[in-house]
Nucleic acid binder design. Structure first.
Lengths: 342, 342
DNA sequence: TATCTACATGCAAACGTTTTCAGTACCATA
DNA sequence: TATGGTACTGAAAACGTTTGCATGTAGATA
């Protein structure tokens, strides 16, 4: 089985260049020659060696994705969106799952660079982003999703309007007659956690409801902290009563519901609840959970388009030029039963 | 910013070979030289070019994974398992999502080969596997998961004992007092669908219950067919009564539950139900769904270990030798409420 | 001191492509 | 027939590594 251009070339007594030109559909090769070569390519089932090609052309047609947890539907759907757009253009995706670990993330940043990905999509879990310097200084476009780090240079990112998400959630609860609304949020030092908390406060103020700091609990996005935060809230219910709660991550929402049930309280009668990123298309969870949702598929597609744009720029001018973009999408409020009036 | 071995070498007035030897930790380089080189590598933050390395060494330290749907927890968890093992060894994963399309799968098989992955993990959705020939004839180890194709040569695969899974499910229902048990299965021309159906029949026979072909429905693993199959079953309930059902995929289980609810029937009182691959760690679905579960994380790890083994063989003898393995794991029955006695 | 060994280093080829450059052959035009 | 242009082809360098081989040098031994 012939494997390389050289094999095909010597088989046909033509030069490697000619075969290469046929493979790449260049002009200036005689129709007759082209036909012969195409025949041989098919006969030997030739498939080009992308590794050699990449070395020569100085790009790999590969993009890297580093995310904290592929088993979260949110990230899986984003990847599907990216894949949809990129696979048509023969790009391949190298995927790494940092498992919420900053150390692993840093290791993967190096490994991705070593693989010379053309571009990187990053949902960071780290506070420290010096490893990104090699991407920046080598003109490799980076796109952030989900969480934006605090950097002193501009970056591309595709996120949702987190303040707006909270405002929608809180206004919805207020509209359904709840005034005492608790929040379980994330780390306020990260943009995601910060913005969602800010939106919550803004919505309360706009409705002339005082912000009660005892009703603000900080978790880490994972299920157990959702559980413990809700437990605390319930146990101090006498001093700090509340009849609505807004939880800013999928897993924390699950934990919180568990805690509410364990305390024998009912949703929405005792506590009206709005969650985040709840995917229950088949309506199996009862009561149905009202939730802020993100347009994952759109995010993925937009990320892919942005990357393509950046790579085109780079191909043209040699640099990633253009002003970096913060693309901010609108969240969606999916209303179900968990937030209904008493 | 120096980028290549050459840059570092000329900076220090040593040869490229010497720098390469330091990078790769070879012996026979003078401690003093090594120190100088290490200093420069650090100073310039050198990261080797995997593309060039791959071309020379004829392997890429890359493995390909093609699956039908990354948003299914089952596949996501397998990938996490593979990643856990492989990332320690500096392997990278190239992921492609065939989106249940045989055409896309075939395209991806070519693209993966073009990328010269060292090994391939495939959850196939196709009946046609000629595209695999290039892997076989080029000695690239392939591991099947989830579904085994009918090939005339031996293949490596890691799956669960599907007959046993069905036997566990059906015996459980019988033990809980159900005798008239329906099944919603997959395409019996695929091993997965076939084996799960066979197990169902065997379990009934072992319990001296006649197999009623009117209680066997064939879906395609997706939600809507679960729904329609269950609807059919319910509508012919007068002629073919049943009080238990076993459904062999996650999404079909959801669809079936939806249909049962729409008909005003209750689980488990009217119909006791055992599903498949239901991941509801937080117990949000009520009633809790009894389900056959697969040890995804183990599957992933075993797949990774198998690949490593094959690649070692290949490195030694130049061929993927050794007898191909069918590694068959035990399914797990997670008992919750949906299958309880009346 | 002469010889031998072991260590340290560099040279150059090779991996499979792409692409520039130069060259050849052919055809049309004047 | 001479001239010019066009269409086609091939040689060779380059991409950034690894590695076999040759070479050189230093220390040890006789």
């Amino acid at each position: 089985m012939a494997r390389t251009l050289k094999d095909i070339a010597s088989e046909l007594n033509v030069s490697v260049s000619t075969v290469s030109r046929v493979v790449n559909n260049c002009d200036n090769v005689h129709p007759k020659t082209r036909k012969r070569v195409l025949g041989a390519l098919k006969k030997y089932n030739y498939i080009p060696n992308q590794v050699a090609r990449s070395l020569k052309k100085n790009y790999t047609e590969t993009i890297g994705i580093i995310i904290p947890d592929i088993s979260e539907t949110f990230f899986a759907q984003i990847i599907k969106g990216i894949d949809e757009v990129l696979s048509n253009r023969n790009y391949s995706i190298i995927l790494m799952d940092s498992n919420e670990s900053p150390e692993k993330e840093e290791h993967y940043l190096k490994l991705m660079f070593q693989n010379r990905v053309d571009s990187l999509v990053l949902a960071t879990v780290s506070k420290e982003h010096s490893a990104l310097n090699m991407y920046i200084s080598n003109n490799i476009p980076v796109v952030f999703i989900d969480n934006i780090p605090n950097l002193d240079y501009d970056i591309d990112c595709v996120i949702i309007n987190n303040q707006k998400a909270s405002i929608m959630a809180v206004n919805h609860l207020i509209g359904n007659g709840r005034k005492d609304i608790a929040i379980i949020t994330g780390n306020p030092l990260e943009t995601t956690g910060y913005e969602r908390l800010e939106g919550y406060k803004r919505a309360l103020r706009q409705n002339n409801i005082p912000v009660n700091s005892n009703l603000i609990k900080y978790g880490n996005y994972k299920e157990d902290t959702g559980y413990s935060c809700m437990k605390e809230l319930i146990e101090h219910r006498a001093e700090n009563p509340f009849n609505g709660v807004y939880i800013i991550s999928e897993k924390m929402t699950y934990g919180a519901i568990k805690a509410i049930r364990e305390h024998g309280l009912t949703i929405p009668e005792d506590i009206a609840l709005v969650g985040f990123d709840i995917h229950d298309k088949s309506g199996l969870i009862t009561p149905g959970i009202t939730s802020i949702c993100q347009p994952e598929n759109d995010i993925g597609k937009i990320v892919a388009e942005l990357i393509i744009k950046r790579l085109k720029e780079k191909a043209k001018s040699g640099k990633v030029s253009g002003i970096r973009q913060r693309i901010i999408l609108d969240p969606i409020l999916e209303v179900k039963v968990s937030s209904q009036p008493e």
